[in-house]
Simulated scan of single mutants.
Amino acid sequence: MVRVTGNFASEGPLHPAAREALLAAFDQGWADPKKLSQSSSKAAILRNHGLETISTRLGIPADSIEVLGEPSLGHYLSIAGLLQESSTFAYSAIDKGKIRAIARSRTSQVLELAVDSAGAIQGLSEVSPGAVLSLQLANGETGIIQDRLLSISEDVQIAIDATASGPRVALPDRWSTALFDAASWGGPSGLAIMAIRNRSQFSYPLPRIAPISSPGSYSLPLLIASAVALENFTPESPSLREFAVAQLSKIDGVHLVGPQSPAMPHLLSLVAANVSGENVVRELAAQGVDVDSGSACSAEDLQPSHVLAAMGYETNGHIRLTLHNGTTEADIASLVTALSGVLQKLRG
């Protein structure tokens, strides 16, 4: 058998330019940029240049930026910083578990918005004035983009989750906070960017003494590497996703999730009938092809996808694919051949 190789899993390598910048930053960006030494002054220059790059590339004001050393904490900060004790909190059925956990912790009114089979959030016009809405700009499992946002009340505060989309999808005209993950544009993991549009409407939700909006603890080298990766980021070609959808649709018993929905160019999900998604992942891995299964990103926590369930799809046999820069049509064709063989084997 000819051995197939290909990475269609969510994890990708650090951008080469970011890798070089990271090594240099460890040499030059080790000092505290808030102090007055010469080394600190150099570090401050590096930090400011990085923030300017991030501001320009993400389309957010430089003075709105908070750098976070713990991306997962950003979901809580960007939402809880807008909430009052009596605020209604609205979120969608396809939001991440971290957002759903915030909803479960609320004692005031909570509104879960359904989605249709195309992945579009329903009932946005029902979110009452004064509420805080968590809005996932693009879904990290299916790649589907939310583009029907005009019906949201002017008095609703919107916490945008852009951790999956990064620079691929522009922020809507209205947003209160926005959260980005550097890994989404080939930057290092362990660094997030939170933007706060109106600081007078935001209150740091954790215990504090000083008037802060974020913990302020992050690695300056990671910030510099993230800025370099963002500066060198090239979006994936939409035609590659279209090719993948067309080829995968030819496999018997494979159903693409929201194939006609507006979507990011690098993510798609499918459901293979009458097989376990985890078994498909293992069989493909044995042939050198890496894909993801379920809603979790780690092998230790493979759970049925609440995203697919909310859209009305079967969750068993769920496979997630990521098309990286450098993926070719030949790679996709090899994946299709390998997947067809695996499904025939598993179905007997």
Rank of each mutant, 00 (worst) to 15 (best):
T5K: 10
F8V: 04
F8G: 03
P13E: 15
A25F: 07
F26H: 12
A31H: 00
S40C: 07
K42Q: 15
A44L: 06
I45F: 06
I45T: 13
N48E: 14
H49F: 07
L51I: 14
T56P: 01
T56H: 12
R57M: 05
I60D: 02
D63N: 14
E66Q: 15
E66P: 08
L68R: 09
E70R: 13
I79Y: 01
A80R: 14
S92M: 02
I94N: 01
I94P: 00
I99K: 00
I102F: 08
A103G: 05
R104T: 11
E112M: 09
L135Y: 00
L137G: 02
A138P: 07
T142E: 11
G143K: 02
I145V: 15
I145D: 08
R148V: 12
L150Q: 15
L150E: 15
S151F: 10
S151W: 09
D155G: 06
Q157W: 08
D161N: 06
A164E: 06
P167F: 06
R168P: 00
A170Q: 08
R174Y: 06
R174N: 02
A178F: 02
L179F: 03
G186L: 09
G187Y: 03
G187I: 13
P188R: 10
I196L: 03
N198Q: 13
R199K: 14
F202Q: 03
P205A: 05
P205M: 04
P207F: 02
P207T: 03
I209K: 10
A210F: 08
I212Q: 04
S213F: 14
S217N: 12
S219W: 12
P221R: 02
P221N: 03
L223Y: 05
L223R: 13
L223M: 15
I224F: 10
A229H: 10
N232C: 12
F233L: 12
T234R: 15
R241G: 10
E242V: 13
V245G: 00
A246Y: 03
A246L: 04
Q247I: 09
Q247W: 01
L248P: 04
S249V: 10
S249W: 09
S249D: 06
H255V: 14
P259R: 13
A263V: 12
H266S: 13
N274K: 14
S276W: 09
N279Y: 15
N279W: 15
R282H: 14
E283Q: 15
Q287F: 04
V291R: 00
D292P: 05
G294Y: 04
G294Q: 08
G294L: 03
A296V: 05
L302R: 12
A309M: 09
T315G: 03
I319H: 00
T322P: 00
L323W: 01
G326W: 13
A333Q: 07
L339A: 05
L339E: 04
L339W: 01
V342N: 09
L343T: 10
L343E: 09
K345A: 13
